[in-house]
Amino acid sequence: MKIDITHATKEIGGSILLDDVTLTLQSGRIYGLQGPNGSGKTMLLRLIAGLIRPSSGSVAIDGKKLGADMDFPPSVGLLIENPAFLPNNTGLKNLELLASLKGTTDSGQIRRTLSRTGLDPDDPRKVRKYSLGMKQRLGVAAAIMEQPDLILLDEPTNALDDKGIACICDILRQERERGALIVLACHDAEILYPLSDEVIKVCDGRVERGQMK
């Protein structure tokens, strides 16, 4: 998979959230987005996910333009902002409902994904009883369970303890080995730099390619 963002600008209500962003992202790599709060990291993730349309410029995935040739990337898993689920279902039931939309993932795969993120697939508790960290793990599980080619994660280590952070980092490395393209926004440089193949700095909606491994 190859993502080409060409001179993408996003303006909402008179303020420019993304300013002339040009980037090329390749599969099998982890790209880290680093920048201060409000710099446009989440907006960039939304743009790649197809949730927002650029005011000018374009986003192309394998040569096909988002918004014109397709509405969303063909195989994408995402965790943007806070993970939100149906509060009265268990974690497993929530993932099964999501997976039923594509029908490409069986129950065994979902259970394995839950175990990978450190959650018990047979946990009878409803999601409303989950702690913040458990919800975060479930959010990551939802993003990776269908083994998507593109994984977009916004602060995936929020509310996680050290063990949880290590677990998520391991998962991301395994997903990279599988060949997925991962874009990760994280404010913690200690997590972002060792994990990323390339760090992209975002400031006031502009991007600047940074350190490359």
Binding site: L51, F72, P73, F85, N94, L101
Partner: peptide, 12 residues
């Protein structure tokens, strides 16, 4: 919950 669903729908 919906953003997960919308993205999976593939088609707005």
């Amino acid at each position: 919950t919906g953003q997960q669903i919308i993205v999976r729908s593939g088609n707005r």
